[in-house]
Nucleic acid binder design. Structure first.
Lengths: 160, 160
DNA sequence: GGCCAGTTGTCAAAATTTGAACTAGTGCTA
DNA sequence: TAGCACTAGTTCAAATTTTGACAACTGGCC
C-alpha cells in the first residue's frame, strides 16, 4: 500500500492525519462542553468579530468556511435562533444578506475564547518548542495559501 | 482574543487549523470522486487490511477511529451493505462482533490507495522538503502518542 | 447458582447535510 | 428601457449521520 509515497512521507502523513483527527475531536469536545459551541459556531463568531462592522456577506462566510450555500444558511439559522447572530439585508445588493454579530454573540465568544485557547495550549502548543512552532507555521501557512488559490482557480477556471 | 496564546503560537494554530481543514476536505472530495469512499471508509479498510486475520472487534475499531460505538455500528453497516466488510460473531465473547474485510473490500482498497496517496502527494507532500517532513513527523507522532495516552487514562482513570 | 456492576453493540429518533428548484435582483446588450 | 443571462441566497424534501436510551452478555462476588 506504499506504491506512490516514499516511506518517510507515508509515516509523516499517517502521524499527521491520525494526531490531527484526535486533536480536532478533543478540541471540539472541550469547546462543546464548556461553551456549547461547535467548531463551526466558534469559527463563525471569530470571523464576524474580526470583520469590519462585525458583519459579513453570506457568500464571503461560505467561502471562508468552505461551506455550501445551503449548509451556511442552516448554520446561520441555528445561530440566529440562539441569538448569536442576526441577519440583515445587504444595502448595496438587494439580493444579498449579511450575518451580523450580536452583543450576545460577542459575549459568548469572549467567554468561550479563553477556554478554547487554553484547550489549544494544553492539547497542542505547550508541548511544542519554538522551532516546531515556526516549522508548523511555515508548512501550513504555505499550504493554506496554495489550497485557497487552487480552490479559487477551480471556481474561476479562466483567469490565466 | 489573544489572552492565553502568545501571538506566534496563535498564528501557528490558525495556519494549521485552516490549512488542515481545507486539506481534509480536498482529499475527501478526491477520494469520493475516484473511489466512492469516504475518509472513514478508507481508514476502516486500511485498519482491517493490516489487522491479523483482517478482522477487528468493533470496540477496537471504534477506539482507533475515535468513533462512538453507535457511530461505528452505522459506519460498518453501510460498508457491509456495499459488500466491503462482513460482520461475524466473536467466538470468545458472545456480546461482541467483529468486522472482517471481504475480498471485495480488499480489492476496493487496492484500487483506491494509489489514487488517494497520489492525492496526498500533490496536495501536501510534494511541496514539503525533507526537513519539513521530519518536523511534521516529530510533532505529530509525539502528539498522537500523547493524545492516545490521555484518552486511555480518561477511560480508565485509576491505573496510577 | 444468583446477583450486580460494567461492557458490547443496536435501534429509533433527532440533527445535519445535500441538491434541486425557486425567488429576487443585477447589469449587460441592443 | 426591455430582454436576458447570470448571481445571491433560501427553501424543501430526501439522504445521511449522530446521538442517547436500551437490551444482551460477561465476570466476579457473595
Amino acid at each position: 500500500m506504499t506504491e506512490s509515497l516514499e516511506p518517510k512521507r507515508l509515516t509523516a502523513w499517517r502521524a499527521y492525519i491520525e494526531a490531527s483527527q484526535r486533536l480536532f475531536t478533543q478540541l471540539e469536545d472541550d469547546l462543546r462542553a464548556d461553551s456549547g459551541l461547535s467548531f463551526a459556531d466558534y469559527h463563525v463568531l471569530v470571523l464576524l468579530s474580526e470583520a469590519p462592522g462585525q458583519r459579513l456577506r453570506m457568500g464571503e462566510l461560505a467561502s471562508r468556511l468552505v461551506f455550501s450555500p445551503s449548509r451556511l444558511t442552516y448554520q446561520i439559522t441555528t445561530m440566529q435562533r440562539r441569538g448569536l447572530v442576526a441577519r440583515e439585508a445587504c444595502p448595496e445588493d438587494r439580493r444579498g444578506s449579511e450575518a451580523v454579530l450580536t452583543a450576545a454573540g460577542l459575549l459568548t465568544l469572549r467567554e468561550a475564547a479563553p477556554h478554547h485557547l487554553a484547550s489549544v495550549r494544553t492539547h497542542l502548543m505547550d508541548d511544542l518548542d519554538d522551532d516546531e512552532v515556526a516549522c508548523l507555521t511555515r508548512i501550513f501557512d504555505r499550504l493554506g495559501r496554495r489550497l485557497r488559490a487552487e480552490r479559487d482557480t477551480a471556481t474561476h477556471p479562466s483567469e490565466t
